[in-house]
Deep mutational scan, measured.
Amino acid sequence: MIFPGATVRVTNVDDTYYRFEGLVQRVSDGKAAVLFENGNWDKLVTFRLSELEAVK
């Protein structure tokens, strides 16, 4: 189960963010908004829950 605050990895091989890890900001309607941070940039991207896996 994916909840806000969880760290997730993108599993969709066709996505630009494949294998990126980010922090879930919100979850609704089968989608999750994931925040990616890297140095001087932040990006908030929405994914279907089926495209994400929780990082242990």
Rank of each mutant, 00 (worst) to 15 (best):
E53K: 06
V10M: 02
R19T: 09
G39I: 09
F20T: 06
V27K: 02
N12A: 09
E37A: 12
L52E: 01
Y18R: 02
E51H: 07
T7K: 14
G22M: 02
K56N: 13
K43P: 05
L44R: 04
E21S: 07
L44Y: 06
N40E: 12
F36Q: 00
K43A: 13
V24Q: 00
M1C: 14
E51N: 05
D42S: 15
G30Y: 05
D15F: 04
L52H: 00
T7V: 12
E21N: 05
A6L: 09
R19Y: 08
R19E: 09
E51Y: 06
R9K: 07
D15C: 13
F20M: 14
K43E: 12
L49I: 11
N12V: 07
F3A: 10
F20K: 12
E21V: 15
R19V: 03
A32G: 02
L52K: 00
Y17F: 09
L35D: 03
S50P: 05
R48V: 11
N38F: 15
V10G: 01
K43T: 12
E37F: 12
Y18W: 06
R48I: 10
F47Q: 03
G5Y: 03
G5C: 07
E51P: 00
F36Y: 02
M1S: 11
K56V: 14
K43F: 13
A32N: 00
V34M: 01
V27N: 02
V27T: 04
G30L: 05
T7M: 13
S28W: 15
N12M: 06
A33C: 13
R26Q: 12
Y18L: 02
W41R: 08
S28F: 15
V55S: 04
D29C: 10
G39C: 13
L35K: 08
V24K: 00
V55R: 04
F20W: 15
V45Q: 05
L23S: 07
D15K: 05
Y18V: 02
V13P: 15
S50E: 14
M1N: 12
R19D: 12
E51R: 02
K56I: 13
N38M: 14
T11I: 14
V8G: 00
S28D: 10
T7D: 02
G5T: 02
R9T: 06
F3P: 04
Q25T: 13
R9W: 07
V13S: 10
R48Q: 14
R19A: 11
K31W: 14
T46K: 07
N38W: 13
Y17H: 08
V13K: 14
T46G: 04
R26W: 15
K56W: 10
D42V: 15
N40V: 11
F20A: 09
A6K: 05
V13R: 12
E51W: 06
E37H: 14
R48T: 11
V13E: 10
Y18C: 03
A32H: 01
L35C: 10
T46F: 13
R19W: 09
Y17V: 01
A54N: 09
R19H: 11
V8Q: 00
K43G: 08
S28T: 10
K43H: 10
D14F: 12
Q25K: 10
G30N: 07
E21M: 11
F36P: 00
D29S: 08
R9G: 02
R48A: 14
V55M: 06
V27M: 07
S28N: 09
G39N: 08
A54S: 08
V10T: 02
G30H: 06
E53S: 06
